[in-house]
Design a protein around this nucleic acid. Structure first.
Length: 575
RNA sequence: GGAGCCGUAGUUCAGCUUGGUUAGAACGCUAGCCUGUCACGCUAGAGGUCGCGAGUUCAACUCUCGUCGGCUCCGCCA
């Protein structure tokens, strides 16, 4: 008898006998009759057991694995369960086979409202993934992967795999190293991204490539960062910015349509990096939030408001955020908002509001002639460190947008952030470092500054930003060997380390462009999640540990000997 | 590397502010009853190194310090 998925049982099966396999989700033993919800990947179905016919029903427990053969019937109209997808029907068990018993479990799979601590969920991930919510995220991820693959393949892109054991190169994040047994003292590196491989594939004439690529970076974790994450990696020969952007927009259009039945607005609007920082205080603005930041330094050049006047004297800037209808926020609420800028070193926020035609607040005496409208509130911060000030203003904008309910969470708003600088100054070392991606082609019109003033050079870079998440970074690559060498040198990197790549460029490299996008983040957005951990079957904790398997772990002395490795000191707690 | 929040039955939490009886609740679990439940109901019961270590104190779940673990953020992540 063919198996039917629990979630697929419907009125069409009425009076038919079906075979169901799954886990006992919830049991209601009424003595003379037992009801249970049977669960599999597809959903839940109610099974009715008469213990006289199926005595096994008295012996089952939550999460036992069972097989049911039984007849489908429509539920009486007063017993339809609206919350259940299969709530109109039920299955009367004729045979119940226990395929496997479940031990007493550390937490309950069936109680959505009693979500165990994330530590528990990670330790017993197989149970956590059984929760219908998590099962759905895995299903969503699969579907997005499948849709994406088909879309890219149809667009003429070939899926090509690149090595997991790669060469360590000095740029970028910290490498994960894998010791070589055959060549003791030498190491492979796990790839931070397939960047150089995919460019070399273009040199090889593969024309268009894509890959769902694992990227590994030994850096500290966050809600949106894992040691290993999955990138949709794309590269195309003889392509420019427009071609890559259009391709990506089409990909998101497919997802939005197939998953949400909605059109996503394309093309995604472009915004320069400078504009993003000036108006939103961030290079990854959530443009669903209509609030914009302004620079109001000139208002405080000779101001009586000492703090800001001092800032201006020292060459700093003052920036403001106007909140429509913000005057209704209480002092307490303003204090809560002000807390948000303390991590950036600001003791508080200066503000002024207009109610009943009157200005009030700490700034009210110093903002005469202001264009502040009735009911509005203006928040101001001043500082010397522009980057820090922007970050704080960006945070204020986010917090206020949420507090005033200005952001429609169901909305999707994507944009391209362009014209990033190629280089920036590292504050600590005073050295010039790559701002984004050193294999990017500089803009033609900025080439003249390359030697004189490299900080002025903009790259042909474009970041995709969706709902305030940076999803990925694309660029038109540098396919000129000499220029690439120059870029590496300016960034303080030794071209010798990239010899294999530079040689490949010399061998007839086509102009090419591409992008890499964080797939976990994209899934998180479509799933409405704040953390990418719930989109990954087996994620790591913020300290980089796998709690279920217990990793990283110690290894046998013999394994180390084989690799020619001696561990100097072992912290006892990490065994 | 730094800051913050959290850690108490199997699970989710209360108790800690102001140190002092036997550390409670809900769910789960065990046993029994129950023929239309769907958070089934009813009765009874078991279950705790209060993360770990040190200190203060006559006395620590409670106060202090350290440590381990989880989460959030800064640094870091081209």
């Amino acid at each position: 008898m063919k198996r039917v998925y629990c979630g697929n049982v419907a009125l069409e099966h009425e009076q038919k006998t079906v075979r169901l396999c799954g886990w006992v989700h919830r049991l209601r033993d009424l003595g003379g009759v037992t009801f249970l919800h049977l669960r599999d990947r597809s959903g839940l179905i109610q099974v009715v057991c008469d213990p006289k016919k199926v005595p096994e029903a008295d012996e089952i427990h939550a999460e036992d694995v069972i097989e049911i053969k039984g007849k489908v019937s429509a539920r009486p109209s007063d017993q339809v369960d609206e919350r259940l997808h299969t709530g109109k029907v039920e299955v009367a068990a004729e045979k119940l086979t226990v395929l496997n018993r479940a031990c007493n479990l550390p937490f309950s799979v069936e109680r959505e409202e009693l979500l165990p601590a994330e530590e528990m969920r990670l330790r017993y991930r197989y149970l956590d993934l059984r929760r219908p919510e998590m099962t759905a995220y895995m299903g969503l991820r699969h579907r997005m992967m499948h849709l994406g693959r088909n879309y890219l393949a149809e667009a003429g892109y070939w899926e090509i795999e690149t090595p997991i054991l790669a060469r360590s190169t000095p740029e970028g994040a910290r490498d994960f190293l894998v010791p070589s047994r055959q060549l003791k003292g030498k190491f492979y590196a796990l790839p931070q991204s397939p960047q150089l491989y995919k460019q070399i594939l273009m040199v090889s004439g593969m024309d268009r490539y894509f890959q769902w690529a694992r990227c590994l970076r030994d850096e500290d974790l966050r809600a949106d960062r894992q040691l290993e994450h999955t990138q949709i990696d794309i590269e195309a020969s003889f392509a420019d910015e427009k071609e890559i952007q259009t391709l990506v927009e089409g990909l998101f259009a497919v997802w939005s349509k197939e998953l949400n039945g909605e059109e996503i607005k394309t093309p995604f609007p472009p915004m320069t990096y400078a504009d993003a920082i000036e108006r939103f205080g961030s290079d990854k603005p959530d443009i669903r939030n209509p609030l914009e930041i302004r620079t109001v330094t000139e208002k405080f050049t000779k101001s009586e408001f000492r703090i800001f006047a001092q800032v201006v004297e020292q060459g700093g800037t003052v920036r403001s955020l106007t909140l429509p209808d913000g005057a209704r926020l209480s002092r307490k609420e303003l204090d809560t908002i002000a807390e948000e800028v303390k991590p950036f070193g600001f003791p508080g926020v200066a503000w002024v509001k207009k109610t009943d035609g009157l200005l009030s607040g700490p700034l009210s005496k110093f903002t005469e002639g202001t264009d502040l409208k009735e009911g509005n509130l203006e928040l101001c911060l001043g500082g010397k460190d522009a980057k820090n000030l922007n970050q704080a203003m960006g945070r204020l904008r986010d917090v206020c947008g949420k507090r005033l309910d200005l952001v429609d969470e169901a909305d999707m708003a994507a944009l391209w952030v362009t014209d990033f600088p190629m280089f920036e100054l590292d504050e600590d070392s005073g050295r010039i470092v790559p701002a984004h991606h050193i294999f990017t082609s500089p803009r033609d019109e900025d080439l003249e500054y390359l030697e004189k003033d490299p900080l002025k050079v903009r790259g042909r870079l474009f970041d995709i930003v969706l709902n305030g998440w940076e999803l990925g970074s694309g660029s038109v690559r540098c396919h000129d060997t000499e220029l690439q060498k120059k870029l590496l040198k300016i960034a303080g990197l030794n071209p010798a380390h990239f010899d294999f790549f530079l040689k490949a460029l010399e061998a007839g490299a086509p102009p090419h462009a591409g992008i890499g996008m964080g797939f976990d983040r994209i899934v998180a957005i479509y799933a409405g999640l704040d953390s990418i951990r719930d989109t990954i079957a087996f994620p790591k904790t913020t300290s980089g540990q796998g709690l279920m398997e217990g990793q990283p772990s110690g290894v046998e002395e013999s394994q180390l000997n084989e690799l020619g490795i001696k561990v100097r000191k072992i912290q006892e707690d990490h065994r």
